[in-house]
Amino acid sequence: MTLLEAKNLSVQLDQKTILEGIHFHLQAGELVALIGPNGSGKTTLLKTLCGLLPAQQGKITALGTPLASIPRQQLAKILAYLPQGNESHWSITVESLVMLGRLPHQNPWQTPSNHDKEIVCQALKACDALQFKDRPVDHLSGGEKARVMLARALAVEPKILLADEPVAGLDPGHQLEVMERFQQLSSSGMGIVTVIHDLTLAARYCDRLVLLYDQQVLAEGIPEKVLTTKNLALSFNIQAHIGKMQGLPFIIPTSVAHPNQE
């Protein structure tokens, strides 16, 4: 089932074209990595896909319905967005922060039901954050905060999860945990799009990569097809060692490529 689809998408911000002619689709059960150099429009694409930014051209559909015609409250029940930066403006407890993910499912004057509490508890467990559920969020380390924010997004119980750099700032162990968690979630039917800078993690865990460069999709498909020497040199301007060890792919950037050597 196609969860999200964008056809011929163009996005301009302040009269500057950020994305042009983008085709994108996300199937149920798929884990897609959005990669590309800084400023290539990854965050813009993610925000456009969840309706935060208007597209000047093109059509986005979620579950077959045009995105613009889905009421915001309805969309909030099926799509969760995990912004970059993990900001929490007030020092509320971890549990009440994750409970915010239940807001789309609650009536205006309703307090959290036992069902809500159960889901929050599961989300915290899944992100290895249950042990500090009573701590104020601003007392957490960067990595702990990132896991709490992910738990918040999971508490929505979305069909679609759009995550902007969810593993940034995590130690290697928790990076692997988040990616494994994504893999489990996608194999249970969730469609996940994640912006990620760690190409090795992207190659290892994601079903499909979308490489953005110069306002457009430079390459798209299975990791082996996208992460080629040529693509990496063109988009990231790097030379990289691409290999496999015990069946696991890895990419090690070795030097900055010189554009004229192409």
Binding site: K77, P83, L100, L103
Partner: peptide, 18 residues
């Protein structure tokens, strides 16, 4: 409720349906 959602910033609050 909207103020609670805004704890996560304007973008996240919007995607929570506000």
């Amino acid at each position: 409720r909207s103020l609670d959602a805004l704890t996560l910033g304007e973008d996240a609050a919007q995607t929570l349906g506000f």
